[in-house]
Design a binder for these strands. Sequence first.
DNA 1: TCAATAGTGTCTTTAAGACAATATGTA
DNA 2: TACATATTGTCTTAAAGACACTATTGA
Lengths: 310, 310
Amino acid sequence: MATDETGPSPAGPRAGQDRAGQERSERDQSEQEWLAAYDPRAYTPVAVTVDVVALTLRHGSLHVLLVERAAPPYQGSWALPGGFLRAGEEDLDGAAARELAEETGLLGGSEVEAALSRIYLEQLGTYGAPHRDPRMHVVSVAYLAFAPDLPDPQAGTDAAAAGWYPVADLDLRPSSRPEAAVVPVDTHGGGVGGHSGPLTLAFDHARILADGLDRARAKIEYSPLATAFLPYDFTIPDLRAVYEAVWDEKLHPGNFHRKVLSVPGFVESTGTTTERGGARGGPRARTYHAGDAQLLHPALLRPAREDEIR
Amino acid sequence: MATDETGPSPAGPRAGQDRAGQERSERDQSEQEWLAAYDPRAYTPVAVTVDVVALTLRHGSLHVLLVERAAPPYQGSWALPGGFLRAGEEDLDGAAARELAEETGLLGGSEVEAALSRIYLEQLGTYGAPHRDPRMHVVSVAYLAFAPDLPDPQAGTDAAAAGWYPVADLDLRPSSRPEAAVVPVDTHGGGVGGHSGPLTLAFDHARILADGLDRARAKIEYSPLATAFLPYDFTIPDLRAVYEAVWDEKLHPGNFHRKVLSVPGFVESTGTTTERGGARGGPRARTYHAGDAQLLHPALLRPAREDEIR
DNA sequence: TCAATAGTGTCTTTAAGACAATATGTA
DNA sequence: TACATATTGTCTTAAAGACACTATTGA
């Protein structure tokens, strides 16, 4: 093991201050020699995790995938699925996809496999306040996922339980979104299903989830990704239900219908209709699948809310 | 020092695989005991850096802040300013602000201080391919900065040189945007000033810069942040010059003027005009400063480019 | 039969863009 | 004087939203 002197930057509270300041003393070495002498362990460690805000539609309302933490810190609390990046083995996107599949038991089974392959995943943001995790400085790269309605997940190895949780039931007020870790409270009993009152999430996951919801609401304005919440074939009213759930706004059925069809490449007709009409009556709807557009021109803008215009 | 057995997850190629799987054996401990026994060094290390895409307007064209690397890897190549996160000491935003000031010598001096305080900083994205840095697995959190015209920077401790570089002179084609590290080539002689041909950047910085430019182009559509490129007081033609430089499009002066004034809260009149007319003639323009709007309603959409509608 | 809903038609208002016109500067 | 440019006016077209209407289906 190399000593601090051969490492490029010594471990300690100010490691990373100026990598090249230390490196400059190595200038006479060739680049190859320098790399060989490099000791990664000489740095003050920072852990990198990947967390996923996975959203889906169940029974017409927006749900988020949560796991119950099986171990400290925040043991017993609900949290976003996630885990440590496998250093040197995978990139961030890969880690997010792995965590999503692994920690929720959404693996194997050909239907689940097909559904998983249709999940949309994008990077949301990175959270790195020094004390957001009581163990050490943890930098967490958050991802946002849109999934069609999936079966109930099986808890992975990291979790005591896992499930889809209605977003509306969560407490996402700023007051319950700590930026740094608070004293972990055992919230046993507040689980998916028979819970009482809004849940608060572990770590700064309430803030991450709030950011994810903001991103999702904006994303479906300019991109056709609302279709990622639906099966391959869907109807315009299905699509409208996605927008209504994500935006938490009622939309005008007639205007929405015409607008979707007027955006080039948003949806493509299958030529057929549903087998039956709506549950409460009405004609059969025509079915569509996603078109080839990557962006919506023009966009489907949210109805302006008076309190946001300022 | 704790051994691997007391750490929550052993170091090694698969560290981080299932943090709670290891943690479960600690369940009988209290949370406090568990935390005390926790050894952060037991993980396979990942380094976290912060890099900044700092954009400004000089002589009417868009420039990016670059530093010449003084040490391997990519010694002598140009790169985005950045450096390692100070573990346990700062959050990501703080690290980005520190790097921007520190590594460019934009410190001290009251005018520079005032200009620095007006710099807009936002997180851009995080890049974590396993081999993007030849030394080890480095996860880099990129930031995007908009700055008013600043003086030429002084090279910081990490850099042999630093300067504002015209974005148009850089080679950002996908072919010169490696996701992983390529063999470092010493590109001495390709510097700010007397260079020959487009530069290629170190690491995956060409990709990060390309992403930053995309973000900037989109950002000024929906937010009033184009004003962050200008002094506190500015004219509508000044503002138009920002849009034209960032979008690389000529805009219609009359329509732009009326549109800016019609967006509530975008700009606020100062009641005065410039001292002189334009360099090539024309009346004095009225001056404005940024209003209190956080978002533009309606947005200033880019002219539709035929090849992007697909 | 009744109520709900898919889908279309029409009209108003708002915004975007093309183009013209006028006034005020610089060189 | 010649030319550039800030600013305003006008007109056309596109899009958003309110509302009405018809046809089809489930209960």
